[in-house]
Design a protein around this nucleic acid. Structure first.
Lengths: 128, 128
DNA sequence: GCTTGCGTTCGAGCGCGCTCTAACGTGTAG
DNA sequence: CTACACGTTAGAGCGCGCTCGAACGCAAGC
């Protein structure tokens, strides 16, 4: 069974080694294996889990909530409904966030339109 | 010419009065008028500007960048091209961000699908 | 066997964007 | 004239999510 050092893990996930240890400390990553000399030995499953965590982070889930999720996960399948609820709530928030961003984006485009006119209008010596 | 107290402004924008003063301190809002007793008297233009600032914030522009924009704005029309450039760069970032979020969202939906199966499968006594 | 490099823990520090406190001035109602 | 709400400033403090430093251990090459 292939394992990864913390450095390899850092490269795989883009997280710093500091952050990897931090995530473990605060309970986001549970029970990372150790090799003979006490070094962390991450499994493939850990890679997948971290990538999932990063997805949650990237979509704006607060670390505190990710912690709850991680806790439930470590408690086994009985908590699957709770995790499902959390994910669905999160999905709604992300969908809402995208809609909001799209609204803002449209207004920013309008603003850019105004600026384009302004800049074009005040250009010294327009071509033709 | 209608003006607003800081409290009215707070209600209009959703920013706290603390934050309104903070924004002024750090240079995001320039030259707010004062009434006879030294109280801030925000103009309609200030409202519009703040709403624009909030749009930039909500789309993830860092305050430091907003400061540069505000500075340029206070320097007059000559800086319009700079502001246009900044807005276009920002627009690209927002568009990219939305795409990224949509990608993550899709994977989260898949995860939810897996959880639904898991939860459904382990349900005690499913109906029919 | 010593250097070099990667690993360990624990705890302090930091950057961002606010948020709040203290001490004090203003203005209207009773 | 007093109460009380609302305003002012300068500056300290905070919550989040890392990020880094100090002091130390293990291991592979010269």
């Amino acid at each position: 069974m292939k394992t990864y050092t913390i450095r390899q893990m850092s490269r795989q996930t883009g997280l710093s080694v500091h952050t990897l240890r931090y995530y473990e400390n605060i309970g986001l990553i549970h029970a990372v294996g150790r090799d003979a000399s006490g070094y962390r030995a991450y499994s493939e499953a850990d890679v997948g889990w971290l990538q999932f965590l990063l997805r949650l982070r990237a979509t704006g889930m607060p670390v505190s909530e990710m912690k709850r999720f991680a806790e439930w996960r470590s408690l086994g399948e009985a908590t699957a409904p709770d995790r499902l609820d959390m994910l669905e709530a999160h999905r709604l928030r992300v969908e809402e966030k995208i809609r909001t961003l799209e609204g803002h984006l449209e207004r920013i485009r309008e603003k850019i339109g105004h600026y384009r006119e302004l800049v074009r209008g005040s250009d010294p010596a327009p071509p033709d």
